[in-house]
Amino acid sequence: MHAVIPYATAALLFGLGVYGVLRRRNAILVLMAVELMLNAVNLVLVTADVTVTAALGHRGGVFALFVIVLAAAEVGVGLAIVLQFYRMRAAVQVDEVALHHEPEAR
């Protein structure tokens, strides 16, 4: 097996994730792009499990599991925030979030 294939895949996916985070305005789409990045990292971890076993033991898979769990938690909280924001402002565009105090937007 050529180790470079999964690594390159992971790198490209990470790049796509970065692109998505910067490009998208819709908060949920931003979250999706974040998921892509997290998965790219997972792929690196799992591949490292196979390719650099000597240095790593079998910790890559364990870390990947942890990352998945963290991602689940992140999505749960993130979506709760997005939905709450949508309920307040009826919008999910990240660049419309007013960071300064707004006197009653509605």
């Binding site: 470079v4 992971a10 790198a11 990470f14 790049g15 970065v18 692109y19 910067l22």
Partner: peptide
């Protein structure tokens, strides 16, 4: 986004390769 994302992706890929 294209510049940063593409840079990150291709850069990392180049590193790995």
């Amino acid at each position: 986004a294209l510049v940063v994302g593409g840079g990150v992706g291709l850069g990392l890929a180049a590193l790995f390769i």
